[in-house]
């Protein structure tokens, strides 16, 4: 099969990003951090999409991750990032392992609609919760790490570093996963569930696992966003947020683990520029490019690159 160079490539790219992060202006650091956060959510989403399932409700876990960070700091007095992120993982695993029991029975638009409904339920609750700031959301307490409280000016950089490390780990793990029998199991389910069943494997069980993994990734994304932005609001669970994740996933395609990251960064940069130059054309650009991608590049921008042999089927 030849050697697999993707892990080395991923490590090099993200370490380079880490170094670059020390020399670039704060707004760009922030942009990179948010891109990685959203990239993580989309990484989970493409895990589902490779299985043939489009979730229109990843905002549920994105928002959950954000709010867990917020509530831990404001209401429970927990600001240590390691501890908070552990809570985030626990919460996402718990919720997704309950909802997953139901969702793994659904396919196609029913899966899309039901995931969206769950996400909108959280939105509906948050919008009406005055303790959590209703539609305005609330400010997040400054994060600490093992008792160390970074200076406010430097906080952008160390959160960025944290995001790079989490993203790198997630990308490496998912890269291995996509090449494993279980990763291919997803494509098998997308292609023909009946055959999978007759190969002695439960599609539901595989989907369940994938759903939980996707939820944890989305929650990480939400948590990083919350820490970086210093603020959370119910929009994170609104369906349009989930729609944006789907958009990024389509933009990058599912052919490579790094695609979500590149897609997310592209979106963020275009958004920044578009909102600056012509505020009421941003969604138009988004919608127009969505149609163009669906029409001309159904496998995402990544399919434009020449294909290397060992990446086939990845």
């Amino acid at each position: 099969m030849g050697s697999d160079r993707t892990p080395i490539f991923l490590c090099a790219a993200l370490l380079l990003l880490l170094v670059v992060g020390l020399f670039i202006p704060n707004w760009l650091v922030f942009l990179f951090t948010i891109s990685m956060a959203k990239g993580l959510v989309v990484l989970g989403l493409i895990l589902l999409m490779r299985t043939g399932l489009v979730s229109f409700g990843q905002g549920l876990y994105y928002c959950l991750g954000g709010y867990i960070v917020g509530i831990s700091g404001q209401h429970w007095g927990i600001t240590d990032v390691a501890l908070v992120f552990l809570l985030v993982v626990l919460a996402a695993t718990l919720l997704s392992s309950i909802l997953g029991l139901l969702l793994c029975r659904y396919r196609e638009i029913f899966f899309a609609m039901l995931t969206m409904a769950f996400s909108m339920i959280l939105y509906g609750i948050l919008v009406k919760s005055e303790k959590l700031g209703s539609t305005d959301g609330f400010i997040i307490a400054q994060a600490t790490l093992f008792g160390w409280q970074p200076e406010v000016e430097a906080s952008g950089t160390w959160i960025f570093a944290l995001a790079v490390i989490i993203t790198l780990v997630a990308l490496l793990v998912m890269h291995l996963y996509f090449r494993s029998p279980m990763g291919f199991g997803g494509e098998a389910i997308r292609e023909n569930e009946i055959r999978v069943e007759y190969l002695g494997v439960s599609p539901r069980r595989l989907i369940y696992i994938k759903y939980v993994v996707a939820a944890v990734l989305a929650a990480f994304g939400g948590a990083i966003t919350a820490v970086a932005a210093g603020h959370v609001d119910p929009e994170m669970a609104f369906w349009a947020t989930s729609g944006e994740f789907v958009f990024i996933a389509l933009l990058g395609g599912t052919l490579h683990v790094a695609a979500p990251l590149v897609g997310a960064f592209l979106i963020e940069i275009i958004r920044t520029i578009a909102l600056d130059l012509a505020p009421y054309t941003w969604q138009m650009i988004l919608g127009g490019s969505l149609l163009l991608i669906i029409f001309f590049l159904p496998k995402g921008l990544w399919s434009l690159l020449p294909k290397r042999r060992e990446e086939e089927g990845l």
Binding site: M1, S180, P181, M182, G183, G185, V201
Partner: peptide, 11 residues
């Protein structure tokens, strides 16, 4: 050997 998420399928 399906539920072995970290060994490649194409060995």
């Amino acid at each position: 050997n399906l539920f072995n998420p970290f060994s490649p399928l194409k060995t």
